[in-house]
Design a protein around this nucleic acid. Structure first.
Lengths: 132, 132
DNA sequence: TCATCTATATGCATGCTGCACCTAGATGAT
DNA sequence: ATCATCTAGGTGCAGCATGCATATAGATGA
């Protein structure tokens, strides 16, 4: 299948929560300036199964954050290897991270309301669920 | 702005978690057969802010579930109003709901790993966070 | 007849994301 | 010198998910 191109989001790994990589990157940058390639490696902390995202997504999110003035960037000569575009969190970006956290907390509440509905329902019907 | 059309996903209400309406509908249908318009009203249980989704999304998800044999449908004359397309959960659909639940539990773990990273980081830097 | 509620459905635009691919500097091996 | 490989950043494309606008149409009551 050589013509097989694109294919969209089959791997739901990074897509469970919409734009989730964005707050992860903001949080990493809150710890100090960094650049795309390094951020990509540090995203492992957030414990997705395997590597969290394609590099293209990372670079695109970083540019998007810069367009909205949530980060700033400068070119820096690497000690070794090609030059790096180093990003720093701006005060506005810090505020945006706070907004993201509150948004994710709301997501968490929604998720748990679902779990409650589910358990409630399964308790009433007390069939199904796990017995094979 | 009369020409303003489309506009995509500005309202992130239903989009926090990807395809989240699907497991909600499956859970509702686990409680017994129902139809689009009624399901739309019952989605309120899941406590999104305001109404959870556009009706078009609901109808499309239901057809998509039917294409994958997770639900079956039949036409039923309403006691009042137009005919309804009544959906029932299939055994495969029940299994699919279980898969969704496990998937959402994984999403929950990822979310909480983020919260842990966040709190950890903010504890260390013990500035920022909430003091205005 | 007409407005309104119920009910289902389609068209379009936009946003997000993964895969394939491209460019290019640095580094070490052959 | 040439080449493979690692580092680093980036673009193009396709596909999916979704909200808004709109269309269709039966039922109901003013």
């Amino acid at each position: 299948m050589p013509g097989r191109r694109g294919g969209g989001a089959h791997n739901r790994c990074g897509r469970r929560i919409n734009r989730f990589l964005e707050p992860c990157l903001l949080l990493l940058l809150h710890g100090g300036e960094s650049y795309g390639y390094e951020l990509l490696e540090n995203l492992g902390k957030f414990g997705f199964t395997e590597n969290p995202a394609d590099s293209s997504t990372i670079y695109r999110i970083l540019r998007s954050l810069e367009n909205r003035s949530f980060v700033t960037s400068r070119w820096a000569e690497g000690d070794s290897g090609p030059a790096r575009r180093v990003y720093s969190l701006s005060p506005a970006g810090d505020g945006y991270l706070q907004i993201w956290v509150r948004d994710l907390e709301e997501t968490d509440r929604i998720l748990h309301r679902f779990f409650n509905e589910y358990r409630n329902h399964m308790d009433l019907h007390h069939n199904n669920g796990k017995e094979t």
